[in-house]
Amino acid sequence: MRLRLGAVLVTALTIGIALITLVGLLGTNIGPISAQIERFGITDFARLLLQFAAVTAAVAVLVGVVNLLGVHLRRTRRRGQAIYSAVLILSFVIVLGFGILPRDNEARAAVDGVQIALETAFSGLVLFSLVYGAVTIANRRPSWASLLFVATVVTVLVGALPVRGLGPIATVADWLNRVPVDAGGRAILLGIALATVIAGVRVLIGQGRATRE
C-alpha cells in the first residue's frame, strides 16, 4: 500500500482538529473531565478554531463575489449574453455605490423595490406550481398515490382559506398538519441527525471524502 505524505498529513490534521473541536464544544457537558478540558484550554482553542472557520467562510463569500464579477466581465464579450452580464455588473456598481456613498434611502429603494418585490413574486408562483403539478399528475397516469397527493394538496389549501363554512375541511387540514406532517417532519429530522452523526464519524476516523482522496 502506497501512502502519500501529504495525504497522511492532511488526514492526521483533520482528525486532530475534529477531535479537539468536538471535545472543546462539548465543554462542560461531559461530566468530571470538563474541568480538565477547561484547564488545558481546549475549549478556548475550539472557539478559536470556530472563529477561524467563520472568518474563512466570510472570505469565501468575498472571493465568490469577485469570481462572479470576473465571470460576467468575460461574458460581456460574448454575443447574445453580454447584455445580461452588463446589467449585472452595472447593478453591482450602483448598489455598491449606495452602500459606500449613502445620500438618502437609495439602498432601501433597491432592496424594497427590487429584491423584495422579485422574491415575493417568486413566492407567489409556488401556488401555481402546486396547482400545475397537481393537474399534470392527474392527467398523466392517475394512481392512488397521485390521487392522494392531489387530494392532500387541495384539502390543505382549501382548509387554509379563511372562508366561513369550510369548518370540516379546515378540521381535516389541521389533522393532516398535526399527525402525518408532524410524523414526516420528525422522520426527516431523525434522518438529518443520523446523517450528521455518520458524516462526523467518517471525518473522525479518516474516511471523509476530503481526507480519503
Binding site: L25, A46, R47, L50, Q51, A53, A54, V55, A57, A58, A60, V61
Partner: peptide, 16 residues
C-alpha cells in the same frame, strides 16, 4: 453583523 457560515456562524455566536 452578518454571521457567515450558516450553522457555523450560529455556533460562533453561541460560543463567542
Amino acid at each position: 453583523r452578518y454571521l457567515p457560515g450558516d450553522s457555523l456562524g450560529v455556533r460562533d455566536l453561541a460560543e463567542n
